[in-house]
């Protein structure tokens, strides 16, 4: 899994990635310099839990992907069944192109788990 994250981090504009469980447990993290792992994991968990709670009001807790764009970067959450793949990127990247790589990484992680 670490290799998959390292490979993903080599894509243009990707600043770091991690696999985090909905309760905030860091399964694996490959975050760049200057990114606070504990804060990102805690906030990722809070985002996942709160979004699911909100969605439950319309009858479905599950979400497949969340792309958050802010003034200085983007954060992508992808559901990988047991956990979420979280990717932090630069603000100026072409997200559609990077999403292909992120989805590929998510798919490989899911497969790794199935084999294990």
């Amino acid at each position: 899994m670490r290799r998959i994250l390292q490979q993903l981090n080599r894509e243009v504009g990707v600043k770091g990635s991690m696999v985090v469980s909905p309760d905030g447990l860091v399964v694996m993290a490959e975050l760049g310099e200057g990114i606070d792992q504990e804060v990102v994991a805690a906030m990722a968990s809070s985002t996942i839990v709160s979004t699911k709670r909100a969605l439950s009001l319309c009858g479905s807790e599950k979400f497949d992907r969340l792309i958050l764009t802010a003034a200085h970067g983007k954060i992508v959450f992808v559901d990988i069944e047991l956990a979420y793949l979280l990717v932090l990127t630069d603000k100026n990247i072409n997200i559609d192109f990077t999403l292909l790589e992120i989805d590929g990484a998510a798919h490989r992680i899911r497969n790794t788990w199935k084999i294990e």
Binding site: M43, S46, T51, A54, F63, L68, T69, G73
Partner: peptide, 29 residues
């Protein structure tokens, strides 16, 4: 949607990526 907006707005501040601009959410709903 308001609950999701408040969540992502708070996350972008806490994760130090600046002011929230937009969010796109996909799922079975």
């Amino acid at each position: 949607t308001v609950a999701i907006y408040q969540t992502v707005q708070d996350s972008s501040r806490q994760m130090d990526v600046g002011r929230f601009q937009k969010a796109e959410l996909e799922g079975p709903f």
